[in-house]
Structures are given as structure tokens and as C-alpha cells.
């Protein structure tokens, strides 16, 4: 292991002993191939076992290790120390979410919103299993594939000042997933999702800052999904207004 070290300034919040978060600096060995999560694991294993944070897959798939690294929402398994060395690194919990302990945030609000947009295939009438799968062509899959890459890491919520100011906002990931299922050729749940997505707490809260798409580690582009939903719902509203006899 190299002799070089790097300082990691970590947010600590232990509700049983303090009312507000504090900071603690740990000096950890610097390895060029280490990511921020490796440094946190080193702290946990060798310096301070009381530090709490979430992680799982270490390969940018599970979406659990999202934190603020030097003020930017990042997956800590994909943020390399070499990009910050030799400067001290600041690691904080994801912005805009209530902090439960240290770097662990409460994501119940997001889970409720995710459930509200019903991110699953809705059918007006389910066909019997014996009749087989709902088939889809590659072209139909291509329509929504980009928006199905979301790993619910919540970096987009941490980057969204609208959510930070008004946490009633349904938010980028949930709205992108709503759009994803609306685009799915097998789905028939547009009307049910639109009740939530096009509500005053849905797409119309978004002011298109666009930072959600900038920080997305999977290039989902939730900002585009939200703006396209705005165009789509507006067009449908005009159609229903001008041609009330037509089907939406």
C-alpha cells in the first residue's frame, strides 16, 4: 500500500447524541485505483466502525451508494480518488433528503412517489398466461429503453433544487419511469399515471434546470422525459378540447 494519504471529510449525524450533523476528517491511504467507496470501507474497517453508509454492488448497478462528493451527487463506487487527490475530499449524504444517520438518508418519500406513478405494465384486461407473453418488436423496445435504465440511485433528486425547495414535487426519476411505461407498447396505463404525472406536483413543478440529466450515471435524461410528457399532455388536452368526440 502506498505511503500517500488523502483526507476524507465526512458528515456525521448520530441522532442519539447530536441535534444537527457535524463533520469528521479521516486520513486514509491513497490508492490510484480506489474509488470513494473504497475509502469509506477503509474507514469503516480500520479506523471507525461506527460510520454508517449504504452500498452494495460496487459496480454502478444497485444505485445504493449515491452521496454528495465535493458537493456533487455521485455514485461513490464510480468516483475515483485520483480525480480529487491531493485535495481533501468532502463526502456528505445525498442533498434534499432527511438524514437518518451519517451518510444514510431516508428515501421513503421517493418510494411513495415511485409507487404513485405505477411503474409497471398496466393492462385493461390481462390475457391468460396460457396465451403467452405480450410480444414487442426491437423498434418498440428502442422507444423506451433509454428511460428504463434508471437504477433509482436518487442522484437526480439530489441535483434538483425544485425538489430541495418543494419536496411535494414527484421528482425526476419517478416521472422518467412514468414516461418509460407510457411509451411501452404493452402498456395501457397512460390515463392512470397521468393523474399523478400531470398534476400540479408532477411535471408542471419542473422548471427544466436540467441538472438531473447531467448527474444521471445511466444517461436516462429525466429532464427530457419530463419535458416530453409536458408536450404530450398539452397536445392531448388540446385534442380533447378541440375534438371532444375523438379518442385520446
Amino acid at each position: 500500500m502506498s505511503d500517500k494519504t488523502i483526507g476524507i471529510r465526512v458528515t456525521r449525524f448520530r441522532p442519539e447524541q447530536e441535534d444537527a450533523p457535524t463533520e469528521q476528517v479521516y486520513e486514509v491511504p491513497y490508492q490510484e485505483d480506489w474509488v470513494v467507496l473504497d475509502a469509506l470501507n477503509y474507514i469503516k474497517d480500520h479506523i471507525d466502525g461506527t460510520l454508517s453508509y449504504r452500498w452494495s454492488c460496487r459496480m454502478g448497478v444497485c444505485g445504493s451508494c449515491g452521496m454528495m462528493v465535493n458537493g456533487e451527487p455521485k455514485l461513490t463506487c464510480a468516483a475515483f480518488l485520483k480525480d480529487y487527490y491531493p485535495n481533501e475530499l468532502v463526502v456528505q449524504p445525498l442533498a434534499h433528503f432527511p438524514i437518518i444517520r451519517d451518510l444514510v438518508v431516508d428515501i421513503d418519500d421517493f418510494m411513495d412517489k415511485l409507487k404513485a406513478v405505477q411503474p409497471w405494465i398496466i393492462r385493461e384486461e390481462e390475457k391468460p398466461v396460457a396465451e403467452g407473453e405480450y410480444l414487442q418488436s426491437p423498434a418498440e423496445l428502442k422507444e423506451f429503453k433509454q428511460f428504463s435504465q434508471c437504477i433509482n440511485c436518487l442522484l437526480c433528486y439530489a441535483a434538483c433544487p425544485v425538489y430541495g425547495l418543494e419536496d411535494v414535487f414527484v421528482g425526476p426519476a419517478a416521472l422518467a419511469l412514468s414516461y418509460r411505461y407510457n411509451l411501452d407498447s404493452r402498456d395501457e396505463g397512460y390515463a392512470q399515471r397521468t393523474v399523478v404525472a400531470a398534476s400540479s406536483e408532477g411535471i408542471w413543478e419542473c422548471t427544466f434546470i436540467g441538472e438531473c440529466s447531467v448527474v444521471c450515471p445511466k444517461d436516462v435524461d429525466p429532464a427530457a422525459a419530463i419535458q416530453r410528457t409536458k408536450v404530450e399532455t398539452t397536445t392531448n388536452w388540446f385534442k380533447s378540447f378541440l375534438m371532444p368526440w375523438g379518442n385520446k
Binding site: 449525524f13 441522532p15 444537527a20 434534499h96 432527511p98 418510494m111 411513495d112
Partner: peptide, 13 residues
């Protein structure tokens, strides 16, 4: 969803 633990909600500057 009800929560039974204390949290700290940071405010946006």
C-alpha cells in the same frame, strides 16, 4: 408511510 426514527432535514440555502 410512518417513520419511527429521528431524522435531520437540511434546508436549501
Amino acid at each position: 408511510m410512518s417513520q419511527s426514527y429521528e431524522t435531520y432535514k437540511p434546508k436549501l440555502s
